[in-house]
């Protein structure tokens, strides 16, 4: 893989409402990998994700995207850096008054000069690829959670970004659908060579898809490990997090064997 990291956090600190939600967080996301950030609710993992696309600006430290500092970019430069990302939000964040088709077509209509026929071809291809082409004329509210996520992903990748951020992609979904979403994330990487950052508290999903796993606890980065190392970790916080999800050393071995 390319030596240049896709995303680099440099001692990032952030306070929200007087509370330190990030405290000196440093890590790198390599190009092409699936980087999973895990942690309990409110630990700061979503905040970390938001810093990557400058939905939040760090109080201290810097966030780099490739060799550009997104945390200090402004105006057109920020827009250009953001264009390198696709983001799948927790609730898919589809515009409720637009149809599935219009939602996915939105970035193309807003940011390209493609004709409506070209747009239609690309949108339908993408919906087809994610298996939601039938729902094109429906409104997001009429779709199941899993389908909404697919549509959200379709919209996130329609402009062909380098990096896709997934915020809790499997939350609120049943296990079967969750695995399908996992497969989808893997498939997106396979097909487009995307760098992926996944924020989740679903450890099964993290272990299944992650190349590396980072644990954030109370605004601090505890460890960044491969899934196998993560399971064997002696770190107390990691152990506590694992045991909370009924994963013991034995289970870890089984998971390891299963892969």
């Amino acid at each position: 893989m390319n030596g240049e990291p896709a995303i680099r956090f440099e001692r990032v600190g952030k306070r929200l409402g007087g509370r330190a939600v990030l405290d000196g967080v440093s890590f790198e996301v390599r190009r092409g990998e699936i980087f999973v950030i895990v942690g309990a609710s409110g630990s700061g993992k979503s905040v970390t994700l938001k810093h990557m696309v400058r939905l939040l600006t760090p109080d201290e430290g810097r966030v780099w995207v490739g060799c550009d500092c997104i945390s200090e970019a402004r105006g057109g430069e920020l827009a250009r850096l953001r264009d390198r990302f696709g983001v799948l939000f927790q609730g898919a964040a589809l515009l409720q008054w637009l149809t599935v088709y219009d939602n996915v077509a939105l970035p193309l209509r807003e940011k390209t000069t493609l004709s409506e026929t070209e747009i239609e071809a690309r949108v339908m291809a993408q919906l087809e690829a994610l298996g939601v082409a039938d729902a094109a004329d429906r409104h997001p509210a009429d779709l199941s959670g899993g389908m909404q996520k697919r549509v959200g992903l379709a919209r996130a990748v329609i402009l062909g970004p380098e990096i896709v951020l997934y915020d809790e992609p499997t939350s609120g979904l049943d296990p079967v659908t969750s695995r399908r979403i996992d497969d989808m994330i893997l498939e997106m990487r396979e097909r487009h060579g995307l760098t992926s950052v996944v924020v989740t508290h679903d450890l099964h999903s993290a272990l299944a898809i992650g190349d590396r796993i980072a644990l954030i606890d109370r605004g601090r980065l505890i460890e960044v490990r491969t899934p196998a190392d993560f399971l064997r970790s002696d770190n107390e916080v990691v152990r506590a997090f694992l045991s909370a999800q009924y994963i013991t050393r034995r289970g870890a071995w089984e998971t390891e064997m299963g892969r």
């Binding site: 827009a79 939000f89 970035p107 940011k111």
Partner: peptide, 22 residues
């Protein structure tokens, strides 16, 4: 407010679609 809460505004921002304009 609903769009803000459900991160639709954030989604627009990430897509570099200015919520004010849009």
């Amino acid at each position: 407010a609903t769009m803000t809460v459900s991160e639709e505004i954030a989604a627009l921002e990430v897509m570099s679609i200015d919520p004010v304009r849009f």
